[in-house]
């Protein structure tokens, strides 16, 4: 009896901790993502190779990656969703978060090396299985990579892609 009660209590505890910490952390993360996106807005990032942008001076492969996971509360809600079907909003925001963060990291790397634009960007997602496998996935990894380029000063500045 006591055993059952304590295990329910523990689950409830994880549930509450997951909910409170998870949603606070998510809000904070989204705030920081929005801030950094504004800061790096002038960087050109595109998923093709633009033509006629002038001579390229230098280039470099840049990457950004992040592993994100759901909190305990959302994981259980997502589990319930699997019974009833429909939109799994918990995973939607998780993936959004992961992708935007990974893109920002790639941009940060490009910027750190003095590049103003990244071309031919690819976004890849893969799941990392948990050991027991009972909770489905341990996390989702997002990898973003592209070629950072710097154009020669003689060409008409940065490419215009709109």
């Amino acid at each position: 009896m006591f055993d059952a009660l304590s295990s329910i209590g523990f689950t409830l505890f994880l549930f509450i901790v997951g909910y409170v910490c998870g949603s606070l952390a998510e809000k904070k993360h989204f705030k920081s993502i929005r801030k950094r996106e504004l800061q790096t807005r002038q960087m050109v990032v595109c998923n093709f190779v633009p033509e006629g942008q002038g001579a390229v001076d230098q280039s470099m492969l840049v990457t950004g990656s992040v592993v994100v996971s759901l909190d305990y509360f959302k994981r259980i809600l997502a589990g319930l969703r699997l019974i009833f079907g429909g939109r799994v909003k918990a995973f939607e925001t998780l993936l959004d978060r992961g992708r935007r963060e990974a893109v920002l990291r790639m941009k940060a790397q490009a910027r750190q090396h003095g590049y103003g634009s990244v071309i031919n960007v690819r976004i890849e997602t893969s799941t990392i299985a948990s050991k027991g496998g009972k909770n489905g996935t341990a996390g989702v990894e997002v990898l973003v990579f592209g070629t950072a380029v710097r154009y020669l000063a003689t060409s008409n500045q940065e490419p215009v892609v709109s």
């Binding site: 994880l14 901790v17 997951g18 910490c21 998870g22 952390a25 998510e26 993360h29 990457t63 990656s65 992040v66 592993v67 994100v68 996971s69 759901l70 909190d71 305990y72 959302k74 998780l94 963060e101 990392i128 948990s130 050991k131 909770n135 341990a138 996390g139 990894e141 990898l143």
Partner: peptide, 25 residues
Amino acid sequence: DFMAGLKNIVGGELKGYTELLEESR
């Protein structure tokens, strides 16, 4: 794995895994 297990309760970025994958890549 243990730290990531703990981090799995509150969710968010699992730094240990991010670093591991970066090193391996």
